[in-house]
Amino acid sequence: MKIVLHIERLVLEELSLGPPGGAVLAEAMLAELGRLLAAGGLAANWRSGGASPYLRGPTLTLPPTEPSGRHVDALGARIAASVHACIGGGTR
């Protein structure tokens, strides 16, 4: 199954990552979301296609800030898990 997901806008309130942080966040989120979808697929109501003006996932807690920037990777994974909770197999 081929899954094409387009996220037009991701709103992260009260969070400043700076230019490189945004790209790292997006990469981490896409990698984790791909892994989650490969493992669990899509919920039945999304399998024939569809669109939604927005999805509201579970509230996230921010990982601790680390000098290495790994907190951005962890945040990307948490965002992916939140998106997956809305569209992934076994949900809704």
Rank of each mutant, 00 (worst) to 15 (best):
S16W: 06
L36C: 04
A51T: 14
E14V: 00
A74L: 15
L15D: 00
A39D: 14
T65E: 10
C86D: 05
G41N: 10
I79H: 03
A80Q: 07
L75M: 12
N45P: 03
L60Q: 09
A23F: 01
L42N: 05
T65N: 04
M1W: 06
G69I: 04
P64V: 14
M1Y: 10
G90Y: 08
E27F: 02
E27T: 13
A28W: 10
G41V: 08
L17Q: 01
I3M: 05
E14S: 08
L62A: 15
A31G: 05
A26E: 11
P64C: 01
A44R: 14
P53N: 09
P20M: 00
R78A: 15
L36P: 04
H84Y: 12
V72R: 05
G57W: 11
G50I: 02
A39V: 07
L75S: 01
T91L: 02
R35P: 00
R9E: 15
P53I: 03
L75K: 05
L17W: 07
I3S: 03
P53S: 13
M29D: 06
P53C: 01
E32K: 14
R47Y: 05
A85G: 01
V4I: 14
A77L: 00
L12F: 00
A77I: 00
G69H: 03
L33C: 08
P53L: 12
L36I: 00
G21N: 08
A23L: 12
L75V: 02
P58M: 06
E27N: 06
L30D: 07
G69R: 07
L15Q: 07
E8K: 12
L5R: 02
P20K: 08
G76L: 02
T91I: 05
A80P: 07
G76P: 09
S48A: 15
G49H: 10
R35W: 07
E13S: 11
A80R: 09
E27Q: 14
L5C: 13
P67F: 07
G76W: 08
R56L: 15
A51K: 13
V72C: 06
I79R: 03
C86L: 01
S16E: 07
N45V: 15
R92G: 13
P67T: 15
G21D: 05
L36R: 15
G57S: 06
E66N: 10
V4A: 09
T61L: 13
H71S: 00
E66T: 14
P64M: 10
I7E: 00
L75T: 00
S52P: 02
I79W: 03
R35M: 05
E14C: 00
G50P: 09
R35L: 11
P58H: 11
L10I: 08
R78Q: 10
A26L: 15
I79V: 15
Y54L: 09
T61F: 06
E27R: 14
G21P: 03
L55G: 07
T59G: 11
H6S: 12
A74I: 12
L60C: 11
P53W: 09
E13N: 01
A39T: 12
A85F: 14
A81W: 09
R92Y: 13
A23K: 12
R70W: 10
M29Q: 13
P67G: 03
R47N: 10
R70F: 13
